[in-house]
Every structure is written in structure tokens, then in C-alpha cells.
Amino acid sequence: MTADASFWIVQTLNALQLSMLLFLLSVGLTVIFGLLHFVNLAHGSLYALGAFVGVSASAFAGSYWAAFAVAPVAVALVGIVLYVALIRRMRNAGPMNQVLVTFGLIFVFLDLFRLGWGDIPLGMAEPDLFSGRTEFLGIVYPTYRLFIIGLGLVVLAALSLLLSRTQLGAIVRAGVDNGDMAACLGINVERVFFVVFCLGCALAGLAGAVAAPVLSVTTDMGTAILIPTLVVVVIGGLGSLRGAIAGSLLIGFVQTFGAVLAPQAAAVAVYALLAVVLILRPAGLFPARG
């Protein structure tokens, strides 16, 4: 079976799809860390929130696109509340306190999901536009999954442009490189932090809404995705956009191909990979600063 070309194409597409999902999550997490020096363990919960809000929105409006539009906005709004109430004052509290507070948030979100949506796994319909399957290169592949890959690439391109071509992007790059310097230049760093944090939350919410039709929506989906996302961020290098891309692809492919080729070793392989990177390159593959 492994000799079959279509097998490799299908698995490559699966890996790409997972990579794009991981990218949507890790890019927010990594840029937030690079700028604010804040590790948000509740980032996975924001993703789950996006999925739950998406399920409700699409059920209410009777259209997938309602989820697509509402989830990022709703999660960004929750992000605003979090930022004002917690994140802002935790920025200089040290990594242990940040880990603890956001771990507490995971618990709070977990029960909020159970209160709001119950314990039963929920599903969400694909949009009509991308339902069904597409035939190409001799394989048949679900159209919606191709849409996920495409969406990831679009977001990637948009973020690259945002970072390289806009003033906000320049400030973010300067801030990641040297936070004090950016502050000295008279830039309103606080406002930039806020915008970036909201953008990161919105992307997490988008990822949740996009993943909902593919995965079942459960209360623990946030904690389940959190660890691979953190692995991506640490392997790529905290604060690095290029690192998030490389890390997402690496983990997406290792996890997907590992699961079909060597199911025994696949799960361990991801962490072993992380351990090796931490030993050889403690700052990740693409460190944000020189």
C-alpha cells in the first residue's frame, strides 16, 4: 500500500491540513510571546471556544459562514476581556505565574464549555460550497480539507505581507527584536501589544471554527491541541513567524506520517524531536533575535 503514489499524495494533504491548523494557532501564540513575553496556556481553550461559538452560530444562522465570521470576532472579544483583566498585569510576573494563571483559565473555560454546550461531542456541517469530494491527480479528497489548506496559505501570505509591508508589522518586528528599543522610539507599545493579542485570539477562534466540521467539538479539544501547538512554538523558536511555519510543517508531517507508518513511535517521536531541538538549539530552529 505504501508504494502507491496516491497514498503519499493523500497523506501529504492530510499533513498539510494539520500543519495549517497548527499554524493558525501557533502563529498567535508565538508572536504574543515574542512581543509580550507571555506564554498563554489558555490559547488552546480559545480555539475550543471558537469551535463552540462556531457550532452555535452556524446552527442559529443555518450557514457555515456565520461560524466563519462570528467565531474570530467572538474569541477576539473574549481576548480583550482577558487582556484587560489578566494578561496586562501578568506580563512581568515571571513564567511560573503566567503558566499558573493561564492553567487556571483552562480549568475555568473547561467548565464554561460544559455549562454552555454540555458534555456531548458536537458536530458542524461543512459549507455547501466546499462539501463533497474533489478528484485530481488520481485521488479523491474531501473538498473542505482542501479549503483548510488554502485558507492556511492565505492567512500565511496575509500575515507575511502585514509584517513586512505595514507600519504595524515593522513595529511588531522591532518589538520582538528589542522591546525596550521600540518603547524608546516613542511607539505606543501597549496599543501594539493589544492589537497583536486580539489578532492572535481571532486566529485561534478562526482555527476552531475551521476545524469544527472536521473534528468533533468537545470540551477537551483545547487541551488536546495545546501541547502540539506549544511543541511547534518551541521548536520553531518563541516569537518567530518563520519558526511557526517551519514548526507547523515539521510537526504536521511527523505526526501524520508517523501515525500511518510507525504508529508505535509516532507520538513519542514528536516529543523526542522537541527534546533534541532543546538540547542542540535551546532557542529553537529560527530564533526571533540574533
Binding site: 510571546f33 506564554v39 515571571g94 513564567p95 511560573m96 503566567q98 503558566v99 501541547i227 506549544l230 511543541v231 518551541v234 518563541l238 504508529p263 508505535q264 509516532a266 507520538a267 513519542v268 514528536v270 516529543y271 523526542a272 522537541l274 527534546a275 532543546l278 535551546p282
Partner: peptide
């Protein structure tokens, strides 16, 4: 700092994944 926390998290999850699949 955070790198130590992440490293221990990774090693712990490695053991978890091992026993989960073994």
C-alpha cells in the same frame, strides 16, 4: 524560565505518549 518549563512538559508528555501507545 519558560524554556525549562517547556522542556519538562515535553519530556513528561513523551512518557505519557509512550505508555498510552505501549
Amino acid at each position: 524560565g519558560i524554556f525549562f518549563i517547556m522542556a519538562t512538559l515535553a519530556f513528561g508528555q513523551m512518557a505519557y505518549a509512550y505508555f498510552f501507545d505501549s
